[in-house]
Design a binder for these strands. Structure first.
Lengths: 350, 350
DNA sequence: CTGTTAGCGCCTTCAG
DNA sequence: CTGAAGGCGCTAACAG
């Protein structure tokens, strides 16, 4: 355990040295540099102080402030898999909202639960972070409980948790329904669903959208039409293989994630099933790569920037002591169907 | 500008309250809880203090420590595009190395330069971070200069910068050479290169590997055999289209990034060119998605975990006041060819 | 208009 | 074996 005390080589300017050079008290310097409007400082000294501070490249030490205010003005975004394509927009949205409220955003990789807990401990329990945005996947009650037990605040992204903590969700149901409706519109009737992990709230909501669309069109959902697998490529591959092994093969598939759709496409290629001639499909969530697959993949673009933005602004409210609703839905802009080449009419259409 | 002073609702335990309950001085509590071995505390009081601390869930406040030591024990990893597939292993490696030295790692999204500078300002200049790992792309001299001018330290990942700052690079040249050698081994002679942005050091090194392999085999590199484009899918698409428009179309292509290879595959599909029957290709860098493309993509797996790990341990050395070499190569484990279906014999072979 | 004072939570001499 | 005192850099009363 390295416990050695280390010192930065270059010393940064402090209020003290500026005060000394300007021949005033540190408090005066503080007032000037913060533009404290409750007290007036003479133009002359103000100018002198500002010049010296600028010359020294003075920036206030965040740690001193944090100590004083019990508040660091930084929040963390905990992601289960930092390189997932869908997270980029969430990050951008969160960062924008953070900046609007003078917070800094840092991202924490929680790809392994043990690591997540370790980083979490250092960052939240030791007071480096005022609050945490927790993306679905790594959320556990013990984690969230620990966060709030340490006077930090948290907001859950895209996952509902027993109503004890604030969570923000996208309208998975509407998005999935939109895609299935398109499949129905072009003539499909035997439509299957690659639904994601059975025990996740996200997958459950997407499945609801699928079922809603099927029900509205009075289409049957066979017992083997819904397959639960992981959200990644391997999951899509496995799930598609199961669907293709069925007696009455579906003519179209609604896939609950982009990565799984890539796997599903591969599974089709592997057995010579053509997309969209033999089977149509679309993926939930959009990303640039969809354009470049073979065939290019029709997708549902969700308001992820807004999701990240909303979650962050709620967290900021929480940090301001305001209360926020337990569940917030981000419904605007609406989910959008991005039509590419993976959806066509069913093979038996004529 | 929100400047209101906010207070956490729950107050965290401090040395003071533990001391009070234990009927001792705060300094004694501090000694016990830090396991200070330079001074002995009686078993009885030690036990009492530890019990109370545990009961209160005491964790030392990082901000108070930071203020005292001018050191936060956290380092940042600045990524140009946080969701790039190659970054995941780098992040994991960096995190592992950070933990080994009792540092915490946070990731910063630098996808937009303006944002990067803003986050950077808040995090580095205000002293929230002891040092910064800067991944290629966003590196500018003004940024790095500003970092060290503020008594933070930085290490550049996979990009050399005029010898003024420490940088760590993977062996791009060896990796690219390995792939091209495989193309040559199966019989290709007209081999092109989609080389990435012309002005980046990374692309330049990969191109060197391509040229080295060609030279070793005494194969000519035509003037139109090397195309510079961006590293993303669109870049690969554009570049491949240029190559296919050439008079003597190459029979194989070395692609300097995975995303560009996906774009290149798409460009081939678009004009009915089959991979690998008509054109073979491989991509620099490996990721799970390569397995699920059509055809599955042969790739070069690079030691990215080790890259992140090495860069971080160098940064820690720097923070300890040690000096480190300006340029460090991560050459172990060696680049590895992951053979899949996108490489085959040239069409004119028999 | 400006200085004095006190303290955020922690650690480290130096005395007992 | 333990306590007292001082200070990291900053800000917010309260005095002048």
């Amino acid at each position: 355990v390295a416990k050695e005390r280390k010192q930065g080589v270059t010393q940064r300017a402090t209020l003290g040295v500026i005060a000394e050079r300007a021949g005033v008290d540190r408090s005066t310097v503080s007032r000037v540099l913060r533009n404290d409007d409750r007290t007036r400082v003479s133009i002359a000294t103000r100018q002198r102080i500002e010049d010296i501070a600028a010359g020294l490249g003075y920036v206030a030490n965040a740690n001193a402030r944090s100590l004083l205010f019990s508040q660091t003005m930084t929040i963390g975004l905990l992601l289960p898999n930092i390189t997932g394509v869908v997270y980029h927009d969430i990050i951008r949205g969160a960062e924008a909202a953070a900046r609007e409220s003078d917070y800094v955003l840092v991202v924490i990789d929680g790809s392994e639960l043990g690591k997540a807990n370790e980083s979490f401990r250092r960052l939240v329990l030791e007071g480096r972070l005022d609050g945490l945005l927790i993306a679905s996947g790594v959320v556990t009650d013990s984690l969230t409980d620990a966060v709030v037990a340490n006077s930090a605040r948290c907001v859950i992204l895209n996952r509902r948790i027993g109503g004890r903590y604030a969570s923000v969700i996208e309208d998975d149901e509407a998005g999935m329904q939109l895609g299935v409706e398109e499949l129905i519109r072009v003539g499909h009737r035997r439509i299957a669903c690659l639904a994601g992990p059975k025990d996740t709230d996200t997958a459950r909501r997407r499945l609801l959208g699928y079922r809603a669309a099927m029900k509205n069109a009075a289409l049957p959902v066979g017992r083997s039409a819904v397959v639960h697998t992981s959200f990644d490529e391997a999951g899509g591959w496995d799930g598609m293989q199961q669907l293709l092994a069925n007696g009455d093969r579906p003519t179209a598939v609604a896939v609950a994630s982009l990565a799984a759709a890539i796997g599903a496409l591969a599974a089709c290629h592997a057995v010579g099933i053509r997309v969209p001639q033999d089977v149509s499909m679309f993926a939930f969530h959009d990303a640039p790569v969809a354009e470049f697959l073979h065939p290019s993949l029709s997708t549902i673009a969700m308001p992820l920037f807004e999701l990240g933005h909303k979650a962050t602004s709620l967290l900021v409210s929480l940090l301001n002591g305001d209360s926020v609703p337990t569940l917030t839905r981000v419904t605007s802009p609406r989910p959008r169907l991005v039509s590419r080449d993976s959806i066509g009419p069913p093979p038996d259409a004529n």
